[in-house]
Nucleic acid binder design. Structure first.
Lengths: 252, 252
DNA sequence: GAGCTTTTTCCGTATTATGGACATTATTAT
DNA sequence: ATAATAATGTCCATAATACGGAAAAAGCTC
């Protein structure tokens, strides 16, 4: 058993390998397709899948294809809440230092979903409901995440979700978006320049080496979130993203 | 190893047992707390958790507590999409038979989230965005789900999420909600009687024996979704819920 | 700093998971 | 409709993994 080098329980590692392959396929795979994507022998794949089916983590369809099962949904939800719990102290640090609302969002298929927010103490402040979904192309967190992905992935995501233009400043086509992502990569952070909502500016940064693409941001009215604010905010965003990354990757 | 009766891979079953315990705890557990909730010996728990930590499915916090890890989020998202895919043909059957929009939602911590919709062919129709979250107390699917839960769970959910009253017909307190849930249990299905939106009525039914609480519904304007409609819709909703339940529980 | 509790590691071995061979089922070609 | 082929599922001897009691290490409380 050649891969016995990680020191973990082999069957558990193999089971999650299969779950990841199903997730990456974005849907369903046959036994043979799984077999072509892994070095595991067919009887081993079959036995592990059968176990996962009996646990509800995988389903076998009438056409014999396998897909991720509904029991993973609740695990994902709780994990999502945990992520918010992890992020909140760091977002609070950002709010304490900068005075504007701080958020965390992660990529959910072809949209971003907000998983944590700490609101600014200002009476006039950005408030983003946790659980709210938004497009990637016209949000700071969305663009920060897209900037980390391969061009084909970016195309697939924005084609899937569409590119509505809620404000005159919204990016509405792929070419402009790709150019903007290039600028984001150079600059190291993204800016939502009133693209989602007139009067609101947002600075965002992806969390490096995250197990699922995610980003953090600070946002507020353009009158406060100006160039001087950006100068103070960017190093703090970078540091918060780094710390979150570190916490996510502890003991791995 | 006394539980070797399921025929599956024991380590995989044990690993998911631990993940479920962490999920049920809603957050974090120590090794000792886990040990008190399972019959597994400490070294076994430790080895399995270490494997899960190395895979990113579990995180160990600086205070040595364990929590669900971020890698489960993406698995949950893909599983969620799969659920929508599974549901859609059955929702379409409902729309074909009844002419009104059909939806599926599931409980996501203390809210419901819509995972699938097939819209009515009418120009005037209910449209619910997939991914949208809503309260449980003022939606048909939410109340159908709550009616399946223990009273303490219901209390916890609606206390956590709050009970806003978007219309004059919305239920705004726990006592009225509990009475309503009693009526739903008797009737076998729930009704959103313009509680979420004036002019809209919704009939919903929980999916029995679902791995995560979920419900399906049909909804439309009160002028069309009347008593005669209900008489036709209820048996079809029940049948669709049964079929979805069956598909979810295949080979388990 | 001592004592107690909890977590982590060790390691001999019992038992499980393995995977090649083969059986069964489904699909495709004729 | 039938035969051939491909894919899936099962069997079982055995290799090697995962097990769990014991002990060591680490953390917490007083």
């Amino acid at each position: 058993m050649a891969e016995k080098a990680s020191g973990g329980v082999q069957s558990v590692e193999r089971a999650f390998e299969l779950l990841e392959l199903l997730a990456q396929a974005g849907g369903q795979l046959t036994l043979s397709e799984l077999s072509s994507l892994t070095t595991l022998p067919l009887p081993t794949i079959h036995r592990l899948l059968r176990t996962l089916v009996s646990l509800g983590q995988v389903r076998q369809l009438p056409n014999r294809r396998y897909s991720l099962g509904p029991s993973l949904i609740r695990l994902g939800e709780v994990a999502n809440k945990q992520l918010g719990t992890l992020a909140r102290p760091h977002l609070k640090d950002l709010v304490d230092a900068l005075g504007e609302s701080a958020n965390m969002a992660l990529l959910d298929l072809d949209m971003v979903v907000y998983v944590a927010q700490v609101a600014s103490p200002h009476s006039m402040r950005m408030f983003t409901e946790v659980g709210r979904r938004a497009h990637t192309h016209d949000t700071g967190v969305g663009k920060a995440i897209l900037a980390q992905l391969e061009p084909e992935q970016v195309r697939s995501i924005v084609t899937g979700a569409g590119m509505p233009t809620p404000t005159p400043k919204s990016i509405g086509n792929l070419a402009d978006l790709e150019a903007e992502l290039g600028r984001i990569r150079e600059r190291g952070y993204s800016i939502d320049e009133e693209e989602q909502e007139i009067g609101v500016r947002c600075l965002a940064m992806a969390v490096p080496a995250a197990p699922t693409p995610m980003a953090i941001s600070v946002s507020g009215p353009v009158s406060r979130v100006d160039a001087a604010f950006a100068e103070r905010a960017v190093p703090l965003l970078r540091e918060a993203a780094r710390i979150i990354s570190e916490e996510l990757n502890l003991a791995s």
